[in-house]
Computed example of a mutant assay.
Amino acid sequence: MTITKPKAKPSQTAESFISGAPDSEARQKGVKKGNKRQISLTITPALLERVDELATELGQSRAAIINMAIYRAVEHGLIKE
């Protein structure tokens, strides 16, 4: 029995190499969860408590309240006081 070298794998194209880079803009941030993306959010404890109170009052989840607030801000803009 003879020892054979494994066949070399075809090298990646330059485009696939570049698009795989960590700083490539083609890659979306966040973890895909169904048709949504999971992100990380940092919020003050006082504001989080108010969000939770509102969620309880409306019978919604914390995530639903945050999603609704972001949607309204994006669609209707922010009110300047």
Rank of each mutant, 00 (worst) to 15 (best):
T44Q: 13
E25Y: 06
P45G: 14
G30P: 00
S24A: 09
T2E: 07
G20K: 00
A55C: 07
K29G: 05
Q38H: 14
A63E: 15
A8P: 01
K9Y: 02
A64T: 15
T13F: 03
K80G: 03
R37Y: 06
K32Q: 14
T13V: 05
R50D: 09
E49K: 06
T42N: 15
I65C: 00
P22L: 04
S24M: 02
P22K: 11
A8E: 13
I3E: 03
K36N: 14
E25A: 04
N35Y: 11
D52H: 07
M1G: 13
E57D: 14
T56Y: 10
I3D: 07
A46M: 12
E57V: 03
G59Q: 01
G20T: 05
A63W: 05
S16Q: 14
P6S: 05
G20H: 01
A26I: 08
S61W: 09
K29T: 07
A26M: 05
A46V: 11
K29S: 12
E81Q: 15
P6I: 02
G30M: 02
A69C: 07
K29D: 13
E15T: 09
E53Q: 11
M1T: 13
R27C: 00
P10C: 01
K9Q: 09
A21V: 05
K80R: 12
L78E: 10
A73I: 07
E15H: 04
N67F: 06
S19T: 09
A14H: 09
G77W: 05
L58Y: 13
S16L: 07
N67K: 13
M1R: 13
G77R: 04
E15G: 00
E15D: 06
Q12V: 08
T13S: 14
Q28N: 12
L41W: 08
S11P: 02
E25V: 04
I70E: 09
I66G: 01
E53S: 06
K80W: 06
S24N: 09
G34V: 09
L48Q: 08
P45V: 15
S24K: 06
K5D: 08
A21E: 11
L54H: 08
T42Q: 15
G34H: 04
S19I: 06
G20C: 02
S24W: 11
L78V: 15
K9T: 08
P6Y: 01
T44I: 10
T44F: 03
I39C: 06
G30Q: 11
E81D: 13
G20P: 01
S40I: 06
K7A: 05
K80N: 09
Q12I: 08
K80E: 12
L78K: 08
L78Q: 06
